[in-house]
């Protein structure tokens, strides 16, 4: 059985002369957090709006369990979403905001109180949502997304406006949702927010997918077999280069070697009687992988020097 829950296929969309989506295609699977990452203006929000039936693409399809969003009955029980936490009428209380949403899906006030508690908002439920901080609004938006207990969650920049404590809470929350078997699609323009949270990442730039891989694969590809060697010997670089490695200085007494495996580097050092204090395979961070992938895709690159 095909377990794909969200299938985005060949989305194209222009706003006037600006190309927002240029053949965007990817899928989202259940039981894991899929990070949807790219620089601002890469088309993340537009893609999410198309998935949710808010924007119509010029061509291509976005299906949820094989159906377009607009065909879903009681859609909040299929897909929970959070696009803009500020999108609420400020004079309405948090509880009443969720109440009208619940009524639209045939859900009761009891369910509203449950999700309020889950988001830690019970004490402020009868306060006007307009007085909430951005972090509290994000929690309210998450409560709204979970109202229908949906198997799919689509969250646009849920980390925005959260303090460090909130970010840690959110990471745990997202992982719990995925562990319950839900498909979780989370966009972010900061890869570091998704470190240790996303299982899979879809990296986008200029309206199309640049990389679609598991986090493990992505990190391995970026590290690219580089080896870090700590030695005081001036001969080390020559020996490694003669053996076919590409050597670069990576600091005082630190060499970065590519093209040679770790054990080959150790063997060469021993054979030539060169002392070293450390040899290690380079470990890339998600941030590095991301920067490498999006280097060409950033729309407005800062001009240095």
């Amino acid at each position: 059985m095909n377990k794909t829950i969200i299938a985005v296929d060949g989305l194209r969309k222009r706003f006037g002369r600006t190309v927002a989506l240029d053949g965007m295609s990817f899928t989202v699977q259940p039981g894991r957090v899929t990070g949807f990452v790219g620089p601002n203006g890469a088309g993340k929000t537009t893609t999410m709006r198309v998935i949710l039936g808010l924007d119509a693409p010029d061509s291509g399809t976005a299906l949820i369990g094989g159906q377009p969003y607009r065909a879903l009955r009681r859609p909040l029980c299929h897909v929970g979403s959070l696009l803009d936490a500020g999108a609420l009428q400020p004079s309405r209380t948090a509880r009443n905001h969720l109440l009208w949403l619940a009524h639209s899906q045939g859900l009761t006030a009891r369910r509203v109180d449950e999700v309020l508690e889950g988001a830690g908002l019970t004490t402020v439920a009868r306060r006007r949502a307009g007085g909430f901080s951005l972090g509290m609004r994000q929690r309210l938006g998450l409560a709204a997304a979970l109202l229908g207990d949906p198997p799919v969650l689509v969250l646009d920049e849920p980390f925005n406006g959260m303090d460090p404590e909130g970010i840690i809470w959110m990471r745990g929350f997202l992982k719990t949702l995925a562990a319950q078997g839900r498909a979780v699609l989370v966009s972010s323009h900061l890869m570091s927010e998704l470190q240790d949270t996303a299982d899979h990442v879809v990296v986008v730039g200029r309206g199309r997918v640049i990389a679609d891989a598991s986090v493990v694969q992505l990190l391995a590809a970026t590290a690219n077999g580089r080896v870090t060697l700590r030695t005081d010997s001036a001969r080390a670089a020559t020996v490694l280069a003669d053996a076919g490695g590409t050597v670069a200085a990576a600091g005082v007494g630190v060499l970065s070697v590519s093209g040679l495996a770790t054990d080959a580097v150790v063997a060469l050092m021993n054979a030539n009687g060169i002392g070293f204090s450390e040899v290690s395979a380079h470990r890339a961070t998600l941030e590095e992988a991301y920067l490498e992938l999006t280097r060409d895709a950033v729309e407005f690159k800062a001009v240095s020097r």
Partner: peptide, 18 residues
């Protein structure tokens, strides 16, 4: 108009896509 002003119309339209 109050929904358009705040962007809440998008939540309304995700809840009731028709």
């Amino acid at each position: 108009g109050g929904e358009y002003g705040t962007g809440m119309h998008r939540i309304t339209l995700t809840a009731v896509p028709r």
